[in-house]
Structures are given as C-alpha cells and as structure tokens.
Simulated assay, not measured.
Amino acid sequence: MRKLKIIEHVSLDGVVQHSADGDDFPYPDWNLPYRTPEGRDAVLALHGERFDLVLGRHTYDLWARFWPTAPANPMADRINAATKYVATHRPESLRWGPVEPLGPDVAEGVRRVKATDGPDLVLCGSSTLASTLLGDGLADEVLLIVYPIVLGTGKRLVAEGTPARSLELADTSTTPSGVVLSRYRVTGPLPVG
C-alpha cells in the first residue's frame, strides 16, 4: 500500500496560493526571499528518492509549462520521471507524462492508485484536491513548509467544511532563513467530546 504525502508551502496564516490564478492575488512568488540551498535540500528529502504525483488539473497545467523544460537537477529529474495522477474532466488533453487520469470519482481513483505497487504518492499545490483527500481520510502525512510571513489573503491550505482530522507531529526542522519544516502523521478523525 502506497502512502500519500501532502507537501505544501504555506504562510503563517495558512495561505498556499503562489500565483494570481485570475483573481488579483497581490503576492506572487512570496516565498522566494526565504529559499536557501539548505531549504532546497530539505524539501527534496521530504519528497524522497522516488515518488509519483497526485495533482489537480490547474497545478498539472502550471507544472507542465515549467518542469519539462527546467534545467536538469535532482528535483526536476524526479518530478519529470514521476507518474502524474491527475484529477481532470479533460483526460484527452494530458500531454506531460507519464500521466494517468484519476477518473470521475477522484477519491476512488486515489484509493485505487494507493492500493497498487509503486513509490509513495506526493500531492503538492492542488489545495482543493488536498482538502478533499485529507477530508476523505486518504492522506497519510502532511508536510508543511511554513514561511515566516503573513499574507492576509489568498487560498488557504484547508478549505472551509473539510472534515476535522487529528494529526501527530513526527518531526520538525528549520532553515537558516526561518522556514519551519514539519511532518505530521494523520491519525484519523478528530475525537469529539
């Protein structure tokens, strides 16, 4: 059984958005000033040597414009080699591969992929999909790369209405620029009462 890791770059106030996305978001590339070689190496380690990707269609399209032509480096090589499992209503237009659509029922598609042999699955970006999979109990780990900045606006990590979940801190580290990397194991629904 493969694990599904959600890896997100997030501000202190929970914003994961990095581009305008057609809605006048005023802070594109807000995390650039905090990137360091140590942070890059830590993020690469969080992904692992081999992984496949679970992506929403918007993130897939953004990444397909960048990663196939990115200079060779460990992250680009791993991302380009990964099978991309994509939540989409237009599977015939998927060109950057290896790629497979998740099908009309995304949660069932992820369950099917998790049950196969292969490397762990990583979901990056794709905040709507992250909320769905976390709410459906399909995420095994949540890895947060938290930047020392408050944005005050933008898409949040978890959508309103996502079912409550309990997580357990597995480990944490920091970079020289003040970025905190924390890995949590999802332990299940939040106990009530």
Results as ranks from 00 to 15, higher is better:
Tyr60Gln: 02
Gly48Asn: 11
Ile145Asp: 08
Met1Lys: 14
Pro26Glu: 12
Pro148Leu: 14
Arg112Ser: 14
Pro104Arg: 15
Ser131Val: 05
Asp24Val: 08
Val10Ser: 01
Leu167Gly: 01
Gly56Ile: 00
Asp52Ile: 05
Pro71Arg: 12
Thr162Arg: 00
Glu38Lys: 05
His89Arg: 15
Pro68Gln: 12
Pro191Phe: 04
Glu38Ile: 05
Gly161Ile: 08
Ser173His: 02
Gly48Phe: 12
Ile7Trp: 02
Ser127Ile: 02
Leu129Met: 02
Thr153Cys: 14
Arg165Asn: 09
Val113Lys: 01
Ala139Glu: 00
Lys155Leu: 13
Ser19Ile: 07
Ala170Val: 15
Ile6His: 02
Thr69Leu: 08
Asp52Thr: 07
Arg90Leu: 06
Leu32Glu: 12
Gly14Thr: 06
Asp24Ile: 06
Pro163Cys: 05
Ala164Gln: 04
Thr132Ala: 09
Val142Asn: 04
Leu181Thr: 10
Tyr147Lys: 05
Gly188Glu: 10
Pro119Gly: 11
Gly188Gln: 10
Thr172Cys: 10
Pro148Ala: 11
Asp23Lys: 15
Thr172His: 09
Pro26Ser: 12
Phe25Tyr: 12
Pro68Val: 14
Ile149His: 08
Val54Pro: 00
Pro119Cys: 09
Gly193Arg: 04
Val192Pro: 00
Thr83His: 12
Tyr147Leu: 09
Val54Ala: 03
Pro26Ala: 13
Met75Glu: 11
Leu123Asn: 00
Gly154Val: 05
Ser126Ile: 07
Leu62Met: 14
Arg90Glu: 08
Thr172Met: 13
Gly135Trp: 02
Glu141Ile: 08
Ala107Leu: 05
Leu102Thr: 01
Ala20Cys: 11
Ser166Pro: 00
Ala170Asn: 11
Asp21Lys: 11
Val158Asp: 00
Thr153Asn: 12
Gly188Ala: 09
Leu32Pro: 06
Ser126Trp: 02
Pro191Trp: 03
Thr162Ser: 02
Arg112Trp: 12
Arg90Asn: 11
Leu94Pro: 03
Pro33Cys: 06
Asp52Phe: 07
